[in-house]
């Protein structure tokens, strides 16, 4: 058991709870109809009557995932991409710049 600031965390209790919930879910599932075969028209995807494409064609590649998120955050990402130039001189100037900022940060607090 791990004591945190506001309470505690015990993974063993959590796992027990997880198992109990799983058993309850299984019981509920077992109360369903036993004669359902899982075959027939209802298991197929319905794409407005269009023929379902081959399974090999439908894998969504990484570049297309979270397209909407990228689109809505376009402003943020274009700024970020601009900063990540990949130019080694810029890496050093960022380092020197941040050192200077820290310098101001530490000395200015004394003055105020």
């Amino acid at each position: 058991m791990l004591r945190t600031t506001g309470g505690y965390w015990d993974p063993v209790l959590w796992i027990i709870a997880f198992i109990v919930i799983a058993i309850v879910a299984y019981i509920i599932r077992a109360m369903g109809r036993g004669d359902y075969s899982g075959k027939g028209e209802q298991t197929k995807p319905y794409i407005s009557g269009v023929e379902e494409p081959e399974k090999e064609m439908v894998h969504i590649r990484a570049g297309n995932i979270y397209w909407g998120f990228m689109e809505s955050m376009k402003g943020y990402y274009s700024t970020m991409m601009k900063i990540h130039t990949g130019l080694v001189n810029d890496y050093i100037s960022w380092f020197v710049g941040i050192s200077a900022l820290l310098f101001i940060f530490i000395f200015l607090v004394e003055v105020i």
Partner: peptide
């Protein structure tokens, strides 16, 4: 202190000195 903190913060890869 500034030099040490800046140098080690960059070596551990904290933004905005994370580019490497």
């Amino acid at each position: 202190l500034v030099l040490l903190v800046a140098a080690f913060a960059m070596k551990c890869g904290s933004v905005p000195m994370h580019f490497w």
